[in-house]
Structure formats: structure tokens, C-alpha cells
Design a protein around this nucleic acid. Structure first.
Ligand SMILES: [Zn+2]
Ligand SMILES: [Zn+2]
Ligand SMILES: [Zn+2]
Ligand SMILES: [Zn+2]
Lengths: 132, 132
DNA sequence: ATCAATTGCGTTATGCTATAACGTGTGCGA
DNA sequence: TCGCACACGTTATAGCATAACGCAATTGAT
């Protein structure tokens, strides 16, 4: 998918996420954008929906938060499954892709005749900096 | 971890999950247990916390629901990462374990000096029965 | 026996996450 | 000009999860 021009609200949300050093919840984004005129959660969620659709933002299901894609110039939808390592101390997220894991999972699903549509791979723990 | 005797509330919650054909949300469980005297969400969440700790129940982060472990006589904490395929039509969940995927992810994390603690692997899509 | 610590339980209140439903305005092609 | 698609704004509501309090039963040490 080629990313269309972002609307004003989409740009505001995307900029916040791009500058953030950790994933943000929708309500945190809302708070950060109150000065820019944001008033209601839907303004954030609607922008996020589009950004997710365009593949420039990822949703982290295990922490109900959102993060800008770490590979902005590739297409995260084309290089298969995306995995995240999330530090529970500092919040930092590492995003990575692995075709081996990808194929292995897909083969298993295929053997079960399961048609995969969306995937979530998230590992929580502690990053190098935060490990004592 | 060896599973201790379950308390009354834990048993009630576990039985509901064991008999369910699809994952249940905490509030759905609450509704199903009102006749048994359940009144508040905490009664469910507290039981779930223990069942998760014992490893006999899994939480599906992507759908805010809970499911009984499909491998009750193994120890899901010992055979590495657990993955789930969740059908978005009928709700059925397939639980599986794959050491290949496991090692591959763990190797990557190790190379990043990331200390993994909890993992979430969930694939949403459509099962064989529900595929047109 | 007594005390302290632990664990489970029940209740009320609250907070966080997400969507429904309605209406407005703008741009654009038929 | 009409109809449609889309972004937007607002209010209200639904759904998920925990804080904080107090009580009761159990256990284990003194
Ligand atoms: Zn990405
Ligand atoms: Zn860290
Ligand atoms: Zn299991
Ligand atoms: Zn199905």
C-alpha cells in the first residue's frame, strides 16, 4: 500500500508517535494534542485507524499502545510477520522481521487450513540497558 | 509449577473456561457466574490471575479474553513459547508450540541482549470450517 | 494460647480503553 | 445541481481492568 497524503489530524498523531521514545496509548496521545485542538478520543482513534491501515503505525496489543513503524521506508505488510520486543522498564520497543519464524508459523497454519489475516508477536521483558 | 488445589472461585472460573468452545472475556465469565454468587469483576480477575499463574489458563491479548490451556497435562511454561490461531468467525482457538520458532525468536532476542519474560503470539484469521 | 503474616473473599468506587450515533462541512464526479 | 465519499467534531455509552477498604480463615512461630 502506498501511503496517501496525511490529513491534519493524521499528521499530528503521526508526528507525536514518531517523536515518542516509547509506545503511547490513545489517551496519552489525546493529552499531548489538546493544545492542538484535540478534544475527544475519537479524533485520535480515527487517525490511528488510518495510520494502521497505511502501515506506518503498529498497535501493540499487549500494552494497548501504538508505535511508529521502525522501518518507515519498507512496507511492513510485505515483509511478513512483524515482531516486537518491549522493555517493561524503559518502554523501548525493538521491531524486527524474520522470514524463518514467518515461514514456520505460516506452514503450521497452512497445515491446519487456517487462513491468517492479522498477527501479533510481542515479547515483553527487559532491554540491555535496563538489565541490572 | 505444580498446580495447587483450586479455591471455589478459581474452580468455578476454570470450569466455565474448560467447557467454553471459545475464549471468554472476564465480564462474560462474570455473567455466567452470577447464579453462583459472583457479583463483581474482581472476583473473576482474581481467580484468573491465579489460573494464569498456574499456567492452566492463557490470556489472549488481542481479544481481551481468556482460554483454558489446550495441553492440560503438559506444563505450558516449560515447553517454550505458546502460539494461538484465533478464528474471527467462530472464535475457536488452536494452541500450538514450536521449538523452531521459539529458538529463532530467542536467538534474536539474545543477540540484542534482551531478557524475555512474557510472550504473545496470536494469529487472527479464519479456520478451516469457516473458510468459504 | 497468642500474635503476626498470608491468603482468599466481598464490596464500592474509579480509571482506562474503545466505539456508537449523530450532525457538519468540503470536494468531486455524474 | 445532485449525490457521494470522506474527514471532522461532539456527546454519550460500552467494555475492560484495578484501587482501596475491610473481613474471615489459615498457618506457623513464639
Ligand atoms: Zn513496521
Ligand atoms: Zn529498557
Ligand atoms: Zn497452554
Ligand atoms: Zn472458525
Amino acid at each position: 500500500m502506498t501511503t496517501p497524503m496525511l490529513t491534519k489530524n493524521q499528521s499530528l498523531v503521526f508526528d507525536i508517535l514518531t517523536r515518542a521514545e516509547a509506545p503511547l496509548s490513545a489517551y496519552t496521545i489525546l493529552d499531548k494534542l489538546r493544545d492542538q485542538g484535540f478534544r475527544a478520543p475519537l479524533q485520535v482513534y480515527r487517525a490511528l485507524d488510518k495510520l494502521l491501515e497505511y502501515g506506518v503505525v503498529h498497535r501493540l496489543e499487549s500494552i494497548n499502545s501504538f508505535v511508529a513503524c521502525a522501518h518507515p521506508h519498507e512496507d511492513c505488510h510485505s515483509h511478513g510477520l512483524v515482531a516486537f520486543a518491549i522493555c517493561e522498564s524503559c518502554g523501548q520497543v525493538m521491531e524486527f522481521h524474520d522470514h524463518e519464524v514467518d515461514h514456520r508459523l505460516m506452514d503450521w497454519l497452512k497445515s491446519q487450513k487456517f487462513k491468517a489475516e492479522k498477527s501479533t508477536i510481542e515479547i515483553r521483558g527487559h532491554c540491555a540497558n535496563c538489565t541490572a
